[in-house]
């Protein structure tokens, strides 16, 4: 059973889809039923950060070992991080439109998220600008180390230092008993694990495809020589 974690991922996400709608949620003004978005919108960001963290670790590992497969994992994990981040931004815009009155308000967390996405997009621009494999891997690994630290700064440190509409930032309390009660935690935490595992599954498939094409390329080069 080497596929157990894929099954676990599917079960956890199905659980969150079902119980995310059924459990009792606190009746709060402005939010109303949209508080259930916590199970779907916020988990996208958690998955994004975990995948970008994976990318960061593999970039450091690549600089230590120089193994190409570490660089492949780092770039593919960053790619999936952007995918989850984009869904996070889009779902956040829908939610903001109905609770804050506009899809994009001048909130430090939103601007930080936008900057983070641009930083990670620049990572791929940087990668694609170089043809030589080892050089590309080295330069983009160094860039990626900075990129993840900037992600932490823009998403977690700066929004906390000013006023933000997001819970847990500025004058707002974090996921305290006001925002999220214990019933919600029983869905919220499995949702984070489930979506992250789904992300890891996609990562697994993408890395394997990348390795296959890499293998084929090296074979072609060897045949030509």
């Amino acid at each position: 059973m080497k596929h157990w974690w894929k099954i676990l991922a599917v079960i956890l996400v199905l659980y969150t889809i079902i119980f995310g709608f059924l459990i009792e949620v606190p009746a709060l003004p402005i939010l109303h039923e949209s508080i259930r978005n916590l199970f779907y919108h916020v988990t996208m960001w958690f998955s994004m950060i975990i995948l970008c963290g994976v990318s960061w670790v593999y970039s450091i590992m690549f600089l230590n070992t120089g193994r190409t497969d570490h660089d492949i994992i780092a770039s593919e994990a960053a790619n999936l991080g952007i995918m989850f981040g984009s869904i996070g931004i889009l779902t956040g815009m829908i939610w903001a439109n109905f609770t804050w009155g506009a899809p994009w308000v001048n909130d430090p967390k939103l601007n930080g998220a936008a900057i983070t996405m641009l930083i990670y997009l620049a990572y791929f621009v940087l990668r694609n600008s170089m043809d030589e494999e080892q050089k590309r891997a080295k330069v983009s690994s160094v860039y990626n180390i900075f990129a993840f630290i900037l992600l932490i700064v823009f998403l977690y440190i700066l929004p906390r230092m000013t006023d933000s509409l997001h819970p847990g930032n500025g004058g707002n309390g974090t996921f305290s008993d006001l925002d999220i009660d214990n019933t919600m935690r029983t869905v919220f935490y499995p949702a984070i694990i489930g979506w992250t595992l789904i992300g890891v599954w996609f990562l697994n498939i993408r890395v394997r495809i990348k390795k296959l094409s890499h293998q084929r390329e090296t074979e072609l080069i060897n045949n030509n020589i």
Binding site: L14, I17, I18, F21, L22, W201, F202, I205
Partner: peptide, 19 residues
């Protein structure tokens, strides 16, 4: 919930096939 589960399971089956 049934619709969402169907959508999700459909995507999972698709992913399994790619895998």
């Amino acid at each position: 919930i049934a619709v969402l589960c169907t959508v999700f399971i459909g995507l999972v089956i698709y992913t399994v096939m790619i895998d």
